[in-house]
Simulated scan of single mutants.
Amino acid sequence: MNFRTNLQLKPERNQIDYDSKILLFGSCFSENISKKLAYFKFNTGSNPFGILFNPIAIERLITNAINLKEYTESDIFQLNERWHCFDAHSDISAIEKNELLLNLNNEISTTHKQLSEASHIVITLGTAWVYRFIENDTIVGNCHKVPQKKFLKELLSTQEITASLDNISTLIKSINSNVTIIFTVSPVRHLSDGFVENAQSKAHLLTAIHEITDIKNQLYYFPSFEIMLDDLRDYRFYAKDMIHPNEIAVDYIWEQFKKAWINENTALVMKDVETVQKGLAHKPFNPASKQHQQFLNNLKLKKNKLFEHYQIQF
């Protein structure tokens, strides 16, 4: 008897290899995948403005990066002795005003370059619920603990999300016509919005993504949401908060991502990279022993081989 409903993913076109340049935007799930890619030494960048959960915030970042917007004092504000920007996560906030502006503008410049050169862009949407700052009628990427009375909470319609994702795709393709864009929905439930409200939000995101996915135009969908909720669907795969996927779940979804998006030859190279990574993390009992010196020499040979063939640096 089969006690699981296992998703069977097929290899996609335009798969990732060690010549690929990968850029990720969106929720904390993007961070999880980015860490995996970085561990295996792929050329990857992630969330230049920190974690962003809603499509409007991601669209604004991409729009500003493509247009090389220059952030000024009018775009930031001070609260609780720190300077913040509504377009960015609080991780980007700074004590000094000029430091924040410098960081924002440096990231805009870097992201513009990455968008124009990327072979693959992964966009993870977390929620369709957004907060509109009443003072300037603008949807924010992060509220930075500004009093809630200064915002209106709204649920983006399917049509609004579809339009935003279409804008994102069109903007990126305007400077990088050959890029492959992979959309996914975060499996993390936003239960602070409410159980029913979270389900409605995810439904809007899923519907909108499927409205715009088009293999001919290199716009794809990866089912991380379905893998978590329909394949794993057991609380043993959740962290202590019973909301976020635990390490086992992240590893499993990563394996599914590999099946779909990383070609077989590259997967073999990844095994060699992992061998070196584990070797670098090894803590010897006796660093001066001949055995350990031989181990280090073998590790060096493996590193040199990976650099020679794939320009992989450790």
Rank of each mutant, 00 (worst) to 15 (best):
M1H: 13
N6M: 11
N6S: 04
Q8R: 08
I16R: 02
Y18K: 08
I22W: 04
I22R: 00
L23F: 14
F25W: 05
S30C: 08
S34I: 08
K35R: 11
F40P: 05
K41P: 14
K41D: 11
T44P: 01
S46N: 13
N47G: 00
N47C: 00
I51L: 13
I51Q: 01
F53C: 05
E59N: 11
R60I: 08
T63Q: 14
E70S: 14
T72Q: 12
W83C: 08
W83L: 03
A88V: 07
S90A: 12
L100H: 01
L100C: 07
L102S: 15
N103D: 14
N106A: 06
E107T: 12
E117N: 09
V122D: 07
T124I: 06
R132D: 10
F133A: 04
Q148N: 12
E154L: 04
L155W: 02
D166E: 12
I172A: 06
L191T: 11
F195K: 14
N198F: 00
K202D: 04
L205A: 00
L205N: 02
H210V: 00
I212H: 07
I215G: 05
I215M: 07
Y221P: 00
P223H: 07
F225Y: 15
R233A: 13
A239Y: 15
I243A: 12
I248E: 13
D251R: 13
I253Q: 00
E255K: 15
Q256T: 12
E264F: 06
M270K: 05
V276G: 02
K278M: 06
H292T: 09
K305E: 14
L306Q: 05
Y310S: 00
